[in-house]
Design a binder for these strands. Structure first.
Lengths: 132, 132
DNA sequence: GTTGACCTTCCATCTACTGGAAGGTCTATT
DNA sequence: AATAGACCTTCCAGTAGATGGAAGGTCAAC
C-alpha cells in the first residue's frame, strides 16, 4: 500500500505518517522504486496512533501504548496507569481553563464594548482591575 | 533597572523578557555598559504581558492588546472583540477536554488493571472497543 | 511521449520559550 | 591590586508535533 492509501485508511496526513516513521514509531517496507509499502499491520498501528493522539496522549505516551498494544504478555495495569495519569492531567487542564473562562467572562460582561476607551479588560491586564 | 530587577517586578524570567524584546514587544533603553535599562513604563508593559499571557492570550493577541493598552484613543469594542474570541476558543477547548475526559474515564473504569493482558483501553485505541 | 498524480528527500517554519556556552561587567572582600 | 561571585551580554541549539515547500524521481493513462 502506498502512503496515499495509508493516509486515507488511517486518517493521518502523509506528512504526519512520514514524521512518525522519522521518530521511529513504525518501519514500513519499501518497494523496489523506493516507495513506502504499508502492510495491514502498519495501518493498524497508524490508526492506533491516530486514535491515541486524538485522545490527548503525547507522542511519547503513544509510543508506550503502542508497545503495550503489540505486547501479548502485557499487564492491563500498565495501560491503566498511563490512562489514569492522563486523566489527572486532563482534569487539571479543564480546571485551569474553567478558571480562565470565569475571569474572562466576568471581564467581557463588564466591558461596554463601544467607541469609548474605558475598558475593564485592559484595566485588569494592567493590574488596575477589580477582578481577582 | 537591570533585567534581574525587571524580572522580579514582572514575574517573568529574564530569558523571556529578552525574548519579548527580540520579537518586538518592548524596546528598553541601554546603559553605557550595554545592560538593558528598564523604565517604570517598561515594567508596566511586562506585567501587562505576564497577565495577558497567563489569561491564555497568544503572544500575537498580547501584541494587539498591548497596543490597545497604549492607545488612549482606543475603542473598548476592539478589546472586547479579542476577549470574546478568546472566550469562544476557551469554551471549545473545555468542551473538547470534557469529551476526552468522559471517554477516558469510561475506559479506565472498565479496565481491570491487573496482570492479565485483556484491556479495553487498548481495544478502544485499536478500534475494537465498545466506546464511541 | 507527455501530462498529471503520486512518490522521494531535505530544509525551513511555526509557538513560546528554555538551556547552555563563551565572555564582559560590577561589587565586595582580601 | 587581585580575585571571587553575581550579574549581564550575545548567539546557537533544542523542545513538541507537526506542516509547507522545493527539487526531483516514478507511474499510469492517453
Amino acid at each position: 500500500m502506498n502512503i496515499g492509501v495509508a493516509s486515507e485508511k488511517s486518517g493521518l496526513p502523509a506528512k504526519t505518517i512520514r514524521y512518525y516513521e522519522d521518530i521511529g514509531l513504525l518501519h514500513p517496507a519499501r518497494t523496489d522504486n523506493g516507495y513506502r509499502d504499508y502492510s495491514t499491520a502498519d495501518i493498524h498501528r497508524l490508526r492506533f496512533l491516530q486514535r491515541s493522539r486524538s485522545l490527548g496522549f503525547s507522542v511519547d505516551e503513544c509510543r508506550q501504548l503502542l508497545s503495550l498494544y503489540q505486547d501479548r504478555e502485557r499487564d492491563s495495569a500498565d495501560v491503566k496507569a498511563i490512562a489514569k495519569a492522563k486523566l489527572v492531567e486532563i482534569d487539571r487542564k479543564i480546571a485551569e481553563l474553567v478558571g480562565l473562562r470565569g475571569l474572562l467572562h466576568h471581564l467581557v460582561s463588564h466591558c461596554h464594548g463601544d467607541e469609548r476607551p474605558e475598558c475593564p479588560i485592559i484595566d485588569e491586564l494592567a493590574g488596575q482591575g477589580v477582578a481577582q
